[in-house]
Computed example of a mutant assay.
Amino acid sequence: MTLKNTIKEFRSYLGENESHLDRYHKNTAEKIKLHWGYEEFYEYMEKLVIVEKGRNRNGFSYPVILEINKLQEIHEHLFPGLKHHLSI
């Protein structure tokens, strides 16, 4: 099942559009679903957008970054307080 089909708020955000995470980054989408609703979600999402020293990667396209930001916003709304337990 895709992120779009799993998270109704994300589906509403995307409307008729396909999720770039679901289409082009299936493994990442699966890991987001795995962490959804848990404190570890925030740590995982941060690792997606931060390039660690000595790690060579291309980064995500702008539409994917927008989706990541929206998912973080939705998660914070649905699970208030989880983020505050982490020292991010």
Rank of each mutant, 00 (worst) to 15 (best):
R57W: 10
W36D: 04
I74W: 01
Y24N: 10
E52L: 05
L82R: 13
L48T: 13
K83V: 05
N69W: 13
V49P: 05
K83Q: 06
K33P: 07
K70W: 06
E9A: 12
I68K: 14
S12P: 02
D22T: 02
Q72T: 06
N69A: 14
H77I: 15
S12T: 02
G81S: 05
N5H: 12
R55V: 15
L71A: 00
N69D: 10
N5Q: 11
H84R: 09
L82M: 13
V64D: 00
I74T: 00
E9W: 09
Y38P: 03
L86F: 07
I88H: 06
L78N: 05
F41G: 05
V49W: 07
M45C: 06
M45P: 05
H35T: 15
E52I: 05
L71S: 01
V51W: 07
R57S: 10
I74G: 02
G15Q: 04
H35F: 13
M1F: 02
E39D: 14
E16A: 14
H77L: 15
Y24G: 07
K31N: 14
L14G: 00
S12C: 03
K4R: 01
G37C: 08
Y24V: 09
L14I: 03
E46R: 13
V51R: 13
L3V: 02
L66P: 00
K53Y: 02
E43Q: 12
Y44D: 00
K31R: 14
G81E: 03
Y24F: 14
V49I: 15
H25Q: 08
P63E: 00
K31V: 15
N58G: 13
G15R: 02
